[in-house]
């Protein structure tokens, strides 16, 4: 039972840790890292579903017949590279926020915004 579902449950734990960081931490850099943890957990979920017992990596050899499913590998391979590109975009936005507010802390930014609205 435990080994049957262990992958899925660890994926859920990682996903929830990423989610928790995103909603509870006020630092924008840490939010980005939370997002990458969330992302990695989804990758692990997909790759776990593609695994076949006793299979090997999907590179064809004459002596083997059982391979793991290559389709999730393709989807996740491209998702990883797209993920780093979007992370870079997020970091660029954070750099601009830092120039405008002098901080990457959400609470400080909100306080500055409210002060500006009152003025």
């Amino acid at each position: 039972m435990l080994a049957d579902y262990y992958n899925y449950w660890v994926v859920i734990i990682l996903m929830m840790i990423g989610f928790y960081i995103v909603i509870s931490d006020a630092n924008l850099i840490k939010k980005i890292i939370g997002l990458t943890i969330f992302q990695t957990s989804v990758f692990i979920l997909f790759i776990s579903m593609g695994k076949v017992d006793g299979g090997t990596a999907p590179i064809l050899v004459d002596t083997l017949t059982v391979y793991s499913n290559p389709l999730p590998h393709v989807l996740i391979l491209t998702a990883i590279v797209v993920g780093v590109a979007t992370t870079a975009l997020g970091l660029a936005i954070i750099a601009r926020i830092h120039r405008a507010y002098g901080s990457v802390d959400e609470n400080v930014i909100h306080a500055q915004d409210e002060k500006q609205e009152k003025a």
Binding site: A57, I59, L77, T78, I80, V81, V84
Partner: peptide, 12 residues
């Protein structure tokens, strides 16, 4: 084509 690898990894 023959082993693990390809454009995405090579570019990075």
């Amino acid at each position: 084509d023959y082993g693990p690898g390809g454009g995405f990894q090579a570019g990075v």
